[in-house]
Design a protein around this nucleic acid. Structure first.
Lengths: 220, 220
DNA sequence: TATATAATTTAGGTAAGCCTAAAATAATTT
DNA sequence: AAATTATTTTAGGCTTACCTAAATTATATA
């Protein structure tokens, strides 16, 4: 059994690996809000357990074994988020923080029962894919909202989950995954987006739009 | 915020205080499955935080502040047990272990929502009282099953929750809190109890009966 | 009362997981 | 190529919470 800190490192390495390519000690440390020296220490420990590969100054990579564990932790986290949201009615801007603590302590049995209760879901309340029991991540196709053009319509696929103030802001416009909207106007020079959500107009700034990913893009 | 270990010590001191009177270092250590020297260390730490009173060789006592925290932890634990049992269908012999880990990480918000979902319950699946938000413990009146006489009928009020094999055994007879039964015969010389549960006969050994507490005792 | 036994405490040690400060290495600029 | 800057690693420390072994203190027995 791994420690909580070790699980968090593996999860973070996985996520950083997904986005950019090379996961450096410094980037990992910043992401986890610890000092680079602490990250070095944990990387050495994880390497000794064959969960990561690492050459000094060359960044870390998950081994197959490490990836399995990272995906388990991510599955715990996302299933918990959805469960807290649907079964207990926790607002979507609060579930991340709760799940962060719970993901390390729930048993496989509890997880399986939540999974069943939820009907074997494939995405959490923010639209992030939930890996299945075997570590298979559902394919998702989405593009950043910032690449939309005037007149296009689409559906919210996923939003970034870590900033709860942002989530509350999006919630105030009903911008949840699954919500459809149409671009009325994209202001020039990297300006804000004016959109129509079920007949309601809203202005969404660039910085906010960067955190929104959409699918089903269509000309209208 | 207290550490998990500190919370466990406070909870254990409370429970031991309830049963017998004086809680010695040794008894506490045995209950928590640590060495007496370790218990001494934690007691010193808790004393420095004014959560317990302690004079060497005289045993520990919770202060008012310590009692508040102990009751909060116990409330978390018992609400979780009932929630896992009712909402997720975890068998009653499994909920204790799960709750033991979860009790230290759930937020007040999650607790409040579970409480609401459950309709503000007053007892966990083993019949133990659930303290309310203000730390008030519901009064319970029960007596050990071992004090029952031939022909008396009663209702199961509470069973000891820590031995899951015992719980499975009791479950096989339907001996849950709320279940009524009648004593057919008490074998002499500290012998077993033959009882009738909804028309079914069962033989319950002394050692098992010591873990069962009953109420509503009536002659028939 | 003296002695044996049991309970408790002190002293010193371990493993995680973080920290800071300094040294080593790599990358970038002049 | 040399010097500056940035990144990474080493070295040494701290806290929590456990441990063992030895010393203390209390209790029970002869």
């Amino acid at each position: 059994m791994l420690t909580q800190a070790a699980e968090d490192y593996l999860k973070s390495i996985y996520k950083l690996q997904e986005k950019g390519g090379k996961v450096s000690t410094g980037i990992l440390a910043e992401y986890l809000d610890v000092k680079p020296a602490s990250a070095t220490g944990m990387i050495k420990k994880l390497k000794s357990m064959n969960l990561v590969s690492h050459e000094r100054y060359q960044g870390v990579t998950l081994t197959d074994a490490g990836k399995v564990i990272a995906l388990e932790v991510i599955r715990h986290h996302r299933l918990l988020e959805l469960y807290l949201f649907k079964a207990l009615g926790i607002p979507w801007d609060g579930v991340h923080e709760e799940a962060e603590k719970l993901e390390h302590v729930i048993s496989e049995d509890v997880e399986a029962r939540m999974d069943e209760f939820l009907g074997y879901p494939t995405a959490d309340p923010h639209g992030s894919p939930i890996p299945d029991k075997n570590g298979v991540v559902p394919e998702t196709v989405s593009m950043p909202m910032t690449s939309l053009q005037n007149g296009q319509s689409c559906v919210v696929a996923e939003v970034s989950d870590s900033d709860s103030a942002l989530l509350r802001h999006l919630g105030s416009f009903n911008l949840y995954p699954g919500t459809a909207f149409q671009v009325i106007e994209v202001a020039p020079f990297e300006g804000p987006f004016t959109i129509d959500i079920a007949g309601q107009q809203a202005v969404i700034g660039r910085e906010v739009a960067k955190n929104i990913f959409v699918s089903n893009v269509q000309e209208t």
